[in-house]
Design a protein around this nucleic acid. Structure first.
Length: 741
DNA sequence: ATTAGTGGTGTTTTT
DNA sequence: CACCACTAAT
């Protein structure tokens, strides 16, 4: 029997999980416990034993990468066509469903997906056109308001208005939705909500999918939000088996609406006690694991789980205190060189940090040391300005009603249509209730601007015509050539990279496989009467493929940054490191206010999430773990004095070895000595000083409060205090009569 | 119409 | 510091 093959090497708990009889179950899988393996083997086992065909499987992941990996691994285990399986992210699957049933969902066939950037642009445009006071109703707040409510499953009419402010926000939310509908645009949260509503409204459709998906598997269950949970509930029929894998200790996305509560609810609603814990860790050595366990045990709300390993205890964790962020980077470089001389490959070394901004100093040091590195985060391929511009042209070709795309490129490159002409256009579109494109087509301007506008309209129409006969990469090429974007960037001093990126876009288009995101065979399989709109393969015109490509660009923004050499160091935020593992891991910037981040200190649950984040960071390491912090650090152009992170204190001392570096050895002589002396005379950075973050204080006028940050030093050392009664205030220590409480 | 310069502001993590 | 929105000058 071949089936024994895929099951060999599983430990008893893994085996039990993989071969569970039909029904729902919750798998509590600790870090490094073989979670992905269990998930993929489960799928392979279900299919191999004939319990279900590929068509009956729906697997949801959190990232595109995880989805790809799952498909690859299943395909490696089974010689079957995985095409029929629905594997993807929540957003990707909802997109797929909405494309198939766009009519039932009330969407145009070529609906556009707005990424957060696009969404922000729409919101700003909206606020401006309504002449809203952006002081009181900021674009950022509205974006947050809209997303939070959508993620809670609430349309404007369902949001309860407390005060004047929220009443206005609800109005704006409604206006925003209307504008999106007018333009055929859908934001990330809308993908989910729209799909949820589609399924809950349309009984036929729901019954169809419920019957089809006998097995629903969910990865990273702790990251699901309430709406996703309800979406899964709708999709799971009476006979569907839901298999959820997650780790409450690795829930680090509650800021984005993720609700670990879903794990508790899932046990109640579905699994009904069918819970399997995977606690054997195959990744890290004992000391690292002990540190992680000790740290996370301080959190109160846990399902409870303790990792263990058969690997030896390994070496202790290194902790280094640096004077400045620059010294910290120098120390890390030094250690990395040590690791490399021992034979550790650069790509097996990761430098982690809490916030993207921290990468600059590290990059600088690595660059000077000649160490190849790769930074994850920052701008991704499809988020780059030049790519966004090119995509905007493509969006106009696919759907000229797309005002956002229109505004983006109407004058890029400059063609003589300035703010004056634009105002006129917008006025017309507002009065007639038509899109900017339609307004432009009615030849509303006169003089030079009119000619320029006509040329633009002609350009888009011409491209749209071409689009019908050309393949996707050919369209991309033509758009880039005819739009004048290349010439536009040729004059720029950093235009070289941008032009290269534009050329890369053509490659991306050439490599795009629409079937991967929207299965070609899907329509045949799922011959539902309700979506007769589904185009026949021959009729799957360029526009359809173009829309699929644009959706792909929005949903999967692409690689974070091109690889700088195949074997390079890995730099990334802790968030980005989730799910990865490395031989050696550096966690930098372990300082109060940074990690844990100060913004998390004000809310009660915030610190616990930061602690889970630290837990994730620690458990990325297999053999070497090095923690560091700096006494002073440049942040927002200001020197800040930080005390060591509380998380360092929460690690058992027996697991830790304090280490210095060459930089530290220099202390006591030369310039560093001066700094050291100067530092010791300042009250702010000394651990003995009462002015530390988190300290409760009393002010004679403002009353009681808590210190949220310490800024500067010397005569103008200041603290920021969050007062109970009057809110945040920044005080100069030399003047403020502040007393510790 | 376009561009350069200014000042004010806000900064976590991201599918 | 870095990004923006707005103003002033070409």
């Amino acid at each position: 029997m071949i089936s024994s093959n895929i099951l060999t090497g599983l430990n008893p708990q893994q085996l039990e999980a993989v071969t569970l009889p039909h029904g729902c179950a919750l798998i509590l899988a600790g870090a490094g416990s073989g979670k992905t393996r269990v998930l993929t083997t489960r799928i392979a086992w279900l299919i191999q034993t004939g319990q279900v065909g590929p068509y009956g499987i729906l697997a949801v992941t959190f990232t595109n990468k995880a989805a790809r990996e799952m498909l690859t691994r299943v395909a490696a285990m089974l010689p079957i066509n995985t095409r029929g399986m629905w594997v993807g992210t929540f957003h990707g699957l909802c997109n797929r469903m909405l494309r198939i049933h766009h009519r039932d969902a009330g969407l145009p066939q070529a609906f556009q997906i707005l990424d957060s950037q696009d969404q922000m642009a729409v919101i700003k445009r909206l606020l401006k056109s309504l002449d809203v006071d952006e002081e009181r109703y900021s674009p950022r707040d509205l974006q947050y308001f809209v997303n939070a409510n959508k993620e809670a499953g609430k349309r404007p009419s369902a949001v309860e208005a407390g005060d004047e402010w929220s009443r206005r926000m609800i109005q704006l939310y409604a206006e925003y939705d209307q504008q999106c509908n007018r333009e055929g645009a859908v934001d990330f949260a809308e993908l989910l909500l729209r799909c949820y509503e589609l399924l809950s409204r349309n009984e036929t459709l729901r019954a169809h999918y419920q019957q089809r998906f006998a097995h629903i598997l969910v990865d990273e269950f702790q990251d699901t939000n309430r709406l996703q949970y309800r979406w899964l509930q709708l999709l799971a029929g009476a006979n569907s088996a839901m298999f959820a894998v997650g780790d409450d200790d690795q829930s680090i996305y509650t800021f984005r609406g993720a609700s670990p509560q879903n794990m508790f609810d899932f046990e109640r609603d579905f699994a009904r006690g069918k819970v399997i814990k995977l606690e054997q860790n195959y990744r890290s050595q004992g000391n690292i694991l002990d540190a992680a366990n000790a740290l996370i045990s301080r959190n109160s709300k846990r399902l409870g789980k303790k990792l263990w390993t058969q690997a030896g205890e390994g070496s202790p964790l290194s902790v280094h205190e640096a004077l400045t962020d620059v010294d910290e980077a120098a120390f890390i470089v030094e250690r990395i060189q040590g690791l490399r001389s021992e034979g550790t490959r650069p790509s097996e070394i990761a430098v982690l940090y809490r916030a993207n901004a921290q990468s600059r100093v590290l990059e600088h040091a690595l660059f000077n040391a000649g160490l190849p590195y790769r930074v994850y985060g920052g701008l991704r391929f499809f988020e780059r300005q030049e790519i966004k511009h090119a995509l905007a042209y493509l969006r106009l070709v696919a759907n000229p009603e797309d005002d956002g795309a229109f505004l983006r490129v109407i004058n890029i490159p400059a063609r003589g249509i300035g703010s004056r002409s634009l105002e006129q256009l917008q006025e017309i579109s507002r009065l007639r209730g038509v899109s900017l494109w339609q307004a432009a087509c009615s030849k509303p301007l006169s003089g030079k601007a009119a000619q320029a506008l006509a040329a633009f309209v002609q350009l888009i129409e011409e491209l749209a015509r071409d689009c019908r006969e050309l393949s996707l990469p050919e369209i991309a090429e033509r758009v880039i050539a005819r739009s004048g974007l290349k010439e536009y960037y040729a004059g720029d001093k950093d235009g070289r990279d941008r032009i290269e990126n534009l050329e890369e876009l053509i490659n991306a288009a050439a490599g795009f496989d629409p079937d991967e995101s929207l299965l070609r065979s899907e329509q045949a399989v799922n011959g539902l009467g309700s979506d007769a709109e589904a185009p026949l393969p021959s009729e799957r015109d360029a526009n359809f493929i173009l829309s699929a490509f644009l959706a792909h660009a929005a949903l999967e923004a692409g690689e974070h940054q091109a690889a700088a050499g195949a074997d390079a160091l890995q730099l990334m935020t802790v968030h980005a490191a989730k799910g990865l593992e490395f031989q050696a891991v550096f966690i930098s910037g372990l300082e109060e206010g940074l990690f844990p981040h100060e913004n998390s200190l004000t809310e009660g649950a915030g610190v616990e999430e930061e602690r889970r984040l630290m837990y994730v960071a620690i458990t990325r390491a297999r053999r070497h773990l090095c923690l560091s912090h700096a006494q002073t650090r440049m942040l927002h152009g200001q020197t800040r004095y930080n005390i060591p992170s509380r998380f360092l204190d929460e690690l058992p001392a027996r697991l830790i070895r304090r280490v210095g570096g060459r930089a530290a050895a220099r202390l006591g002589t030369g310039e560093h000595a001066a700094t050291a002396v100067a530092l010791s005379t300042y009250a702010a950075p000394s651990p003995a000083s009462p002015w530390r973050i988190g300290q409760d204080v009393v002010h004679p006028k403002f009353g009681p409060g808590v210190i949220v940050s310490v800024l500067g030093g010397g005569d103008d050392a200041r603290v920021e205090v969050n007062f109970r009664q009057v809110g945040r205030k920044e005080l100069v220590l030399a003047y403020a009569r502040l007393t510790p409480a």
